[in-house]
């Protein structure tokens, strides 16, 4: 197991380094002067030269890259061009909104989608199954920003249970903060829950066709006991794959949803940084988002190893388990 962990961790670090190289190359080396991009085509030469010196663009690319990566590791990310504050503090503030939002949404999606999928599979061909499939069809088809607007109209405008937008801040207390995040999380989670329900249902039904379920029934297990004890644990393997992929969609989703709900999160920061050509903030954000996706796929790999002994043992003893 440790060897397996070491190998996966090495892969993780290599992928992250690769991401920084791509981001650096795209934003700084490709044709187009970053200083010119930031100041616009109307800027005069003196201002451009000053900014180039300030950004260190007169130094060799390799030096700038190493400097930047060292900054990423130590947390010294430079100063935002538009906000005039250290990027680290700015990003940290926004993470405190976006990370809880994404995690709540993912938890909600899993807590809703997986059990519904199991219930649908257990009642295959019966009304409960049809109801889940129908609801999932609607959930998959509905864009989350439109769902967000409907949720605001119902829960914020009509019922006045939660605020329509904005973020109270964690200083105002966890309750208030969570109230602000409730609607955005639901808006993000429902379409993902619909996808998860469909995937889970299909995976459990597929397991039902396997011979080992017949073996379990022949032992004397009831249909439900075979479902819970044998079909569902096996079905979770493909479900976890989808769950990992969904995290990337959730991150993309936050960019839209945070704008609909006017939340001061990473998603809005990305949009603002692009609009204001704040390249220093932007490259940090892109690496951060890429890092999140890489870390999640690492967690998915760990989950595989936990769920499936074939993965765990093959990884522990390469070539040993034939």
């Amino acid at each position: 197991m440790p060897a397996f962990l070491v190998r996966r961790l090495a892969g993780l670090i290599a992928t992250l380094l690769g991401a920084t190289v791509v981001v650096f190359v795209v934003l700084e080396i490709l044709p187009g002067d970053p200083a010119l991009v930031m100041l616009g085509v109307t800027a005069d030469d003196a201002t451009l030269a000053a900014l180039r010196t300030e950004m260190g663009l007169d130094r060799p690319a390799v030096v700038r890259y190493l400097d930047w990566v060292a900054g990423l590791v130590t947390g010294d990310l430079g100063t935002s061009q538009t906000y005039g504050v250290p990027v680290a503090g700015l990003v940290g503030e926004r993470i405190a909104v976006s990370l809880p939002l994404a995690l709540i949404a993912l938890t909600l999606a899993a807590a809703l989608g997986i059990p519904l999928g199991v219930v649908a599979a257990a009642n295959h061909g019966r009304p409960a199954d049809a109801a889940v499939i129908g609801a999932a069809q609607i959930g998959v088809a509905m864009p989350n920003f439109w769902l967000a607007i409907l949720l605001i109209l119902l829960f914020a405008v009509e019922l006045r249970w939660v605020p329509a937008g904005g973020f109270a801040g964690w200083e105002a207390g966890a309750g208030e903060a969570l109230r602000s995040l409730a609607l955005p999380a639901v808006a993000l989670a429902l379409p993902q829950a619909a996808i998860l329900a469909r995937v889970t249902r299909a995976a459990v039904l597929d397991q039902f066709g396997h011979d080992h379920i017949r073996t379990a029934r022949a032992k004397g297990l009831s249909r439900t006991a075979a479902l819970i004890g044998h079909a569902v644990p096996n079905a979770l393997i493909p479900v976890v794959t989808i769950l990992g992929l969904q995290f990337s969609f959730l991150i993309a989703g936050t960019i839209i949803i945070e704008n609909v709900f006017y939340l001061p999160g990473l998603g809005r920061l990305v949009v603002q940084a692009i609009a204001q050509r704040d390249l220093i903030v932007l490259k940090t954000l892109v690496v951060l988002l890429a890092g999140a996706v890489v870390v999640v796929s690492f967690l998915v790999d760990l989950a595989y190893a936990g769920l499936d002994p074939r993965v765990r043992l093959a990884a522990a003893a390469p070539g040993g388990a034939a």
Partner: peptide, 29 residues
């Protein structure tokens, strides 16, 4: 009734299947 059949399966009548590669749950010891 299904309840009664569950009691008999394994205890009264047991069965061995053909496919040794797939008849066992792959993720349980």
């Amino acid at each position: 009734p299904e309840r009664r059949l569950c009691q008999l399966r394994g205890r009264g009548i047991a069965m061995v299947f053909q496919e040794p590669m797939t008849a066992l749950n792959p993720i349980q010891p």
